[in-house]
Amino acid sequence: MTITALVFYVFATVAVGSALLLVTLRNIARALFLFFVVLFSVAGLYVFALADFVAITQILVYVGGVLVLMLFAFMLSNKELLHDLQLGTSQLFALPVWQSVLLAASLLTVLIYAALQLGNQEPGWVLAARDEGTVLSPADSNVQQLGLQFMTRYVLPFEVVSVLLMMALIGAAHLSRKEATP
């Protein structure tokens, strides 16, 4: 067990644990802060996957943008918006609905099974990549390569995404405008 592995497990546990807590708490504010924790942990996990730029982007965009947006929206909204009605009498925890639990658990089982199978028998392209040596190593400079790729190969999706963001912006602004009072 190397240090790397240990840290990885810590990050993984935090992420999963926070996520579990997140979905069971009744208090939405606490849930959102836990979400904040989850996002940070997942960013750490990205680093372990040798995707440092993605990690930073995660923190910048997700945490700094999405989460903040959600917090703002949540904090500045009506009292009714904060209610999370669940069945049962527990004040702190939202009682789990067994169908969803079952479905999630089954899906989890299937996915873990698939993951384990993948471990036994990795896909052809992965093996080929490993053979050719086109595997990311910690010494690689991701940013430069990503930038090159973005401007050459993936330039079209890049531009389209920017248009999309503009549409989302306009749409969200329009949707949440105040109605003119009669």
Binding site: Q99, S100, L103, S106, L107, V110, A114
Partner: peptide, 13 residues
């Protein structure tokens, strides 16, 4: 949503 994921589950299984 439940229905959709149920079906996906079934397909995966």
């Amino acid at each position: 949503f439940t229905t959709v994921f149920l079906i996906i589950l079934v397909i995966l299984i």
